[in-house]
Simulated assay, not measured.
Amino acid sequence: MTEDGGMQRLAVFGAGVMGVGITTLAIGRGVPVVLVDVDRTRLDTARARVRSELRLAHMTGALPRTGPVGDLELADSVTAAADATWVIEAVTEVAEVKAKVHREIASVVAPGTLRVTNTSSIPVDELAGEVPSPEDLAGIHFMNPPYLIGTLEVIRGPRTGERAMSAVEALLSTLGRKGIVVGDGPGFVTSRVLHRMINDAANVVEEGRATVEDVDALMEGCLGHPTGPLRTADLIGIDNLVDSLSVLHERTGDDSYRPSELLLRKVAEGDHGRKTGRGFYTYGAR
């Protein structure tokens, strides 16, 4: 419940892989969600995709089988988020697109409403400089799939206010997630470390030194990586990974973040990972 006794409600912008995953997590925890996307084709399939993800989350025990399930509303207009308790933007990893969406959100929500950018690499303060009320903006890096991974990276930008950080804490408590607060900057902690490793792994394969399977087996068996970097790339989405690497390369000037030619080729060929059925590995229908 909100402070005035109303029902807490989450608005999620973007009905892609991450938006659907975040929506699944929220409704699986009993939180009503309005999922907003201007792409009617993607929005028309969103309910079925959320239903499929929720079924999988229940089967794996990632979300409780019993207890309330939040209502899901679909909308193609920003005004649907006007009464939201919290807003999460989960659109493509392009700073200009994210800033545009946040300006639209800020124009309809009540002052003081938490606005979250779900980003793996774009500095929060870069967005804060382009939007109204930057004190209401914070970053949360949800991992894929959001309902399965219980620890999240929370990014506090230099202009993020105490009220926003308290709202982040309340949101994550409601979602049953643990947040670790880190400082702002390109890639934060997880992407800065992980994406370089994945990029290097792809370069090793491109150079012919080892197969995809052997790279992952070595990283799992020798270094304890739970899935291997290239299987992780498939889970992230290779297109999303390339977008994040490009942001890191542009913002840091570090050439180790320049996207591997193998990654770029897979994106061009439509082999984006699990979501397209083929990436470094091939996946059957769920």
Rank of each mutant, 00 (worst) to 15 (best):
D136W: 05
A138K: 05
A138Q: 06
A138C: 14
G139A: 05
G139C: 06
I140A: 00
I140K: 00
I140Y: 00
H141F: 11
H141I: 10
H141V: 11
H141M: 15
F142S: 06
F142I: 13
M143H: 08
N144H: 09
P145Q: 05
P146L: 01
P146A: 14
Y147N: 08
Y147C: 06
I149P: 03
I149C: 12
G150H: 13
T151Q: 14
T151M: 14
L152P: 02
E153I: 02
E153C: 00
V154G: 01
V154N: 01
V154Y: 01
V154W: 00
I155L: 09
R156S: 08
G157M: 06
G157F: 04
P158M: 12
P158S: 14
R159N: 09
T160M: 05
T160C: 05
E162V: 14
E162Q: 13
R163E: 15
R163C: 07
A164L: 07
A164M: 06
A164R: 02
A164G: 09
M165F: 09
M165A: 13
S166T: 11
S166G: 11
S166E: 15
A167T: 05
A167S: 15
V168D: 02
E169V: 12
E169N: 11
A170E: 13
A170C: 08
A170D: 14
L171I: 06
L172A: 08
L172Y: 09
S173P: 03
S173E: 10
S173Y: 00
L175S: 01
L175C: 04
L175V: 04
G176E: 10
G176T: 11
G176R: 14
